[in-house]
Amino acid sequence: MVSFLRFLINGISLGSVYAIIALGYTMVYGIAKMLNFAHGDVIMVGAYVAFCAMSYLSLPPLVAVLCAMVVCTVLGVLIEGLAYRPLREATKLAVLITAIGVSYLLQNTALLIWTANPKVFPSVFSVGSIKLFDGNLVITSEIILTIVANIVIMIALTLFTGRTKMGKAMRAVSEDRGAAELMGINVNRTISVTFAIGSALAAIAGVLLCSSYPTLMPTTGSMPGIKAFTAAVFGGIGSIPGAMLGGLLLGVIEILGKAYISTELGDAIVFAVLIIVLLFKPAGLLGKPVHEKV
């Protein structure tokens, strides 16, 4: 029972990281209708920037995270402006391949700057841990921090999209880009802001991911990126609560699957659950089904 609780908490912690990454995917998809495959690599860049800020410049962790957020925000806006904006009217596949190109670009630039040798991410957030059930259940500070960060981000984003003018503009653009433009919304600026928010979240996710799994390589971002993308689809792509739910469920399923079914098949179980869910709910758990009109 205690071990089940431990796996559950680890799962929620991993799921929280997935959820934060998935938010970036889902917001970009909802507004620009594109699969941003480079998102996973923005996570990696964020983690590297935080790593450098802490190890080489010996900045305090909080400042390092802020640095990573700033760098990733700038990077996200640049990627959007240089690579995706010229293709706004192009086919989906063209944008997808460009996103893959950007992903290769980021990975290989990172490879040149930081080499392929894995870096050990400093455990800056370990300030102690909570021990329950006579020390059988240890909850580390990283786990608590990840879960708290996830909740804070969730509340902030819900308020942002629901209450602010920019958030309303975002929802309008995702609903109908043409109509939003006619209402005087600056579509390009809205999309840039979306990329900025998504990339800043990716930086946070990168730091949280690496403080729980402290090996940092240029390919660190790709698998969590794919998983988070799966999570976004799982919850219904384009839906913010869906990304949250999808991320958490995916993390819990992955950890429990690895613990109780098979370590090697952990990823296969995650993807199998995704396929089963999509077969019964083709638009994801919280996605709105789109009806075709003739």
Binding site: Y29, L265, D267, A268, F271, L274
Partner: peptide, 21 residues
């Protein structure tokens, strides 16, 4: 049975499952 991006993600998932198995 699926359409568009959902179909794409499921083929991705199957590719990963095959590799994992």
């Amino acid at each position: 049975r699926l359409r568009g991006d959902y179909l794409a993600i499921v083929t991705l998932a199957f590719g990963e499952i095959i590799r994992n198995v």
